[in-house]
Nucleic acid binder design. Sequence first.
DNA 1: TATCGAATTGCGAAGTTTCGCAATTGCGAG
DNA 2: CTCGCAATTGCGAAACTTCGCAATTCGATA
Lengths: 113, 113
Amino acid sequence: MSVPLYEAKAELFRLLGHPVRIRVLELLQDGPKPVRDLLAAIEVEPTGLSQHLAVLRRSELVTARRDGSTVVYALSGGDVAELLRAARALLSAKLSGRHALLNELLEEETGQR
Amino acid sequence: MSVPLYEAKAELFRLLGHPVRIRVLELLQDGPKPVRDLLAAIEVEPTGLSQHLAVLRRSELVTARRDGSTVVYALSGGDVAELLRAARALLSAKLSGRHALLNELLEEETGQR
DNA sequence: TATCGAATTGCGAAGTTTCGCAATTGCGAG
DNA sequence: CTCGCAATTGCGAAACTTCGCAATTCGATA
């Protein structure tokens, strides 16, 4: 094995570790979109968006095809949605953990004493 | 919402984006482990491992409890396994994509011409 | 063909992460 | 209490990422 699997996983996660790239992937889940639309939906300079798109292209998470004078991006194959879903689930578990703790604290306050 | 959800997701992925941290999480999936065992299983200096464990602790992906002279780490709540599984699935989809392409190329070579 | 707009690339400055060394903490045994 | 081992923390140097500006590419339209 030339690249151990855990290295590949780490790299995948590292690629996902930027808000603009997350936004792009989320937007592309509703189907292919021209750069123009992404640019309108995300707060970022054109040049910055291009750079993030380049990262996603190099890692083959998205594909680009030229259509006239615009470029259209799409998710390529693999189930990115699943990953994003798992991330959301984990985050909400963490937040509701906090909530539960908060409730416990409140009970203690109001209950005895 | 003080921190947009996509920022939180990006941060979560960024935290996962290091081989040592991935290894730690994978190892902890089989149950709690003392630092000593992690150290034996992963190629990393003690000081480096501590630093990565600190990152995971701060982000509350793992918890640490002291037991005598050793410290035992465990996954905290949320379903990390699910995330790692999704990552593996995505990677294998990508690799088998390549495979399919490779096969196509081979067919073209040997088929006509 | 010349020019316009869309998107990308090259490049340097600023910011962030990672790594190992030295110093420190916490606990148990002698 | 003091020594030794396990783990952690503080800190600085090196490596990597991100950002915006200027320059470039590519296709459409006059």
